[in-house]
């Protein structure tokens, strides 16, 4: 204890943060479902307003759709920063991946691995999950491929330029979907208020922009996180 003055300072700061967090937890409004609260409004009206069965998706991508827009911008910014920090260098060939047994097994299982993210993204407005979870699953799939076959093999088939293009296109798609609301005379990212047909709750093609935004966010997150992994697994580059 107290070997270095820095440790004492860190301990004091951590204690302060811990006390603040505990106070915040005990000061929380622990009755979020009270009848005059906004959570009760969402639970009562989400399905009739947006036709999305998953109330979380309705809140995220309809009532509060500007919030995922900010999250998507954060991911975009982090991809830009990582690509700036990890300039140059070559992808580590990581031997030639794992043994042929692992390679054949992964090759056989890859189509089934794709099923989960595609299901989660396409049914984001019907069941738990959505574009973000599905997109991260796709990027984990890319990481699995580059562990099993070597990152050079994977990057040759899925170039960084193509990933960057997919991410930028998805970001533009997000803005264009939002502008539909503005063009219809409602607010940015408006759904049913802008006259977008929402269909019937429970159907696969329903919920208006919620389903579209799930697909767009899925593409964007998958491309962004996969390219962050490729930038991080480069070697011999100049780290500024």
């Amino acid at each position: 204890m107290g070997e270095r003055p820095g440790q004492v300072i860190i301990a004091i700061v951590l204690l302060f943060v811990g006390v603040t967090l505990i106070q915040a937890v005990f000061g929380m409004d622990l009755d979020p479902l009270r009848s005059d609260g906004i959570a009760a409004y969402y639970l009562d009206n989400a399905m009739s307003d947006t036709a999305a069965v998953n109330a979380v998706a309705a809140v995220l991508l309809d009532y509060r759709a500007f919030d995922p827009f900010g999250e998507a911008t954060v991911i975009f910014g982090s991809v830009v920063v990582v690509s700036m920090l990890a300039t140059g260098g070559t992808l580590r060939s990581s031997g030639y991946g794992m043994s042929i047994l692992v390679g054949r097994s992964i090759g056989f299982l890859t189509p089934f691995f794709w099923l989960f993210p595609i299901y989660v993204i396409l049914n984001g407005h019907l069941s738990p999950g959505g574009g973000f979870q599905g997109g991260v699953s796709i990027s984990v799939l890319v990481i699995v491929l580059s562990v099993a076959f070597g990152s050079e093999y994977t990057a040759n088939r899925l170039s960084l330029e193509r990933l960057g293009f997919a991410e930028s296109a998805a970001a533009l798609g997000f803005i264009l979907v939002g502008l539909v609301g503005v063009l219809q005379g409602a607010t940015f990212l408006a759904n049913a208020a802008a006259g977008v047909p929402v269909g019937h709750p429970g159907e696969l093609i329903s919920a208006g922009i919620v389903a579209v935004l799930n697909i767009v966010i899925g593409c964007k997150v998958a491309a962004g996180l996969a390219s962050i992994f490729f930038y991080m697994s480069k070697e011999g580059g100049e780290v500024r």
Binding site: N54, P128, G130, Q133, V136, V140, I143, F229
Partner: peptide, 22 residues
Amino acid sequence: VDVALAEAVIGAGLSTAFFMSA
């Protein structure tokens, strides 16, 4: 369940891979 899915995929899958490569 939404948060659980995100936590499982990001925490157990993605961030482990990022830490490993780092």
